[in-house]
């Protein structure tokens, strides 16, 4: 019980269960490796030996059914966008999306004459965290993941949401 002593106040049980769930869900998000382009190389470099993603609890999973977080790394094209939507729908709740890189955020350097480029992956899936950069450094991606962890922790999955 050492973890929970003096951590939570004398509250009703639901609140501390919320926090317990938030802590459990955020600290080991398994990511769905959805590397598309150059940002995928930086994602692989983040998962490799120098900037280790395993220390924040993330392992790459190739199947959407086993993953919690989808890191969209790279440019999404029109041809690919239908598949992104399909894969997002195949993931199990709770699921989150990180848009990594400026191509996934808003079309990137291809925004002007890219007839085949989707101007931001948020046109097809709801995005939780945007990580800017072209490509973002591994440290930026890790900061984005930590921000996602904060966001997950602040969710209240058990309280009834009124209107």
């Amino acid at each position: 019980m050492g973890v929970f002593e003096n951590k939570f106040q004398d509250n009703i049980v639901v609140a501390s269960l919320d926090k317990l769930l938030g802590w459990a869900r955020s600290t080991s998000p398994w990511f769905f490796q959805f590397g598309l382009a150059c940002c995928a190389i930086e994602m692989m470099a983040t998962a490799a030996s120098r900037h280790d993603l395993m220390r924040i609890g993330m392992i790459p999973r190739s199947s959407p059914r086993q993953a919690d977080v989808m890191i969209v790394a790279g440019t999404v094209t029109m041809k690919m966008s239908l598949r992104v939507k399909k894969l997002y729908e195949q993931m199990a709740n709770p699921k989150y999306v990180i848009a990594m890189g400026s191509c996934a955020t808003s079309g990137g350097p291809y925004w002007q004459h890219g007839y085949h480029v989707l101007k931001g992956v948020d046109l097809v899936v709801p995005v939780d965290v945007y990580v800017p950069g072209c490509p973002p450094r591994p440290e930026s991606l890790i900061e984005g993941l930590l921000k996602l962890q904060e966001k997950i922790q602040s969710e209240r999955p058990l309280t009834r949401k009124t209107a």
């Binding site: 094209t77 598949r83 291809y110 004459h113 890219g114 007839y115 085949h116």
Partner: peptide
């Protein structure tokens, strides 16, 4: 073609 980013048009 899943990564066709219109390089030549740019």
């Amino acid at each position: 073609g899943y990564l066709h980013r219109c390089f030549e048009k740019h």
